[in-house]
């Protein structure tokens, strides 16, 4: 961050964050790489999955929460792998127990395992149950502005439309829809899923997103820790560019050097 400009923090459900990059913890080679990438990303909010323990193989094995300690990061348990509202709600309640009452969650309810596209009918149902149960719900959804509005009305604390399919790295497939969602939203909008490289993260921020959540773009880079650093800079750059406001586009060229005083005049 430049020293002459101090951005407002990202505010989600009463918490404040200096970083607008949120990261996942999947697909890394090992926990050391996970930890190094998170540090390089500068992320303060870190998402993870909830799964059955491997009975009999668990004793002494390092745990994700050892390298992502809850007293240092804001943990964001997610409902990845859930295909029904009921499973997603169960998973969130397990996560709340796992984290001693922590109730900020990332809700995602998937439609099928080919597209991992959100099932918005189940997502809306789960969001309503979770909000009524006292959870702060950051919700993964499609880039449909009407669904985004409904999720906000239900009481979700952040709306997180996809840029493109989870893990696809196809970037922002519908920036016009993202713009519609951003313009109407009264809660933070974060692009979740689809980012492939730094320029796409910057573009999401330039569109006016409040933040970006990613996993594969960092974890599946040839050098994940270096990409984590690139993403940190991209999100900061995109945010500053958004606030600064881009110059107007014009049809013809406009010289940056003055015409007057040329030696051939």
């Amino acid at each position: 961050m430049t020293d002459f400009f101090q951005d407002a923090p990202l505010r989600i459900a009463g918490r404040e964050f200096a970083s607008r990059l949120l990261v996942g913890t999947g697909k890394y080679r090992d926990l050391d790489e996970t930890s190094d990438a998170i540090v390089a990303s500068g992320a303060e909010v870190v998402t993870f999955a909830v799964r059955r323990t491997n009975i009999g193989q668990e004793t002494g094995a390092p745990n994700l929460l050892d390298v992502v300690p809850p007293d240092r990061y804001t943990l964001l348990p997610n409902t990845a792998g859930c295909y029904t509202a009921q499973d997603a709600v169960r998973t969130c309640r397990l996560a709340r127990e796992l984290l001693d009452g922590h109730h900020l969650v990332k809700l995602e309810v998937l439609g099928d395992d080919t597209t991992l596209y959100p099932n918005v009918v189940e997502t809306l149902a789960a969001a309503e149950t979770l909000v009524n149960d006292g959870f702060d719900v950051m919700v993964y959804t499609s880039d449909d502005p009407i669904v985004a509005r409904e999720l906000e009305r239900i009481g979700c604390c952040a709306v997180m439309p996809l840029g493109s399919l989870i893990g696809s790295g196809h970037g922002l497939q519908n920036p016009y829809n993202l713009r519609l969602i951003i313009e109407q939203a009264g809660v933070p909008v974060l692009v979740d899923a689809g980012i492939g490289t730094a320029s796409e993260a910057a573009l999401a921020m330039e569109l006016g997103c409040d933040g970006v959540l990613m996993n594969s773009a960092i974890a599946h880079a040839r050098q994940p820790v270096l990409m984590a650093s690139a993403m940190r800079k991209a999100v900061e750059a995109g945010r500053e560019a958004c606030l600064a406001g881009r110059m107007p586009r014009r049809q013809s060229a406009a010289p940056s050097s003055p015409f007057a005083g040329r030696i051939n005049a």
Binding site: V50, N63, L64
Partner: peptide
Amino acid sequence: EIVHAIGGG
């Protein structure tokens, strides 16, 4: 069911 935290996005 006994669950724990694992890497995920």
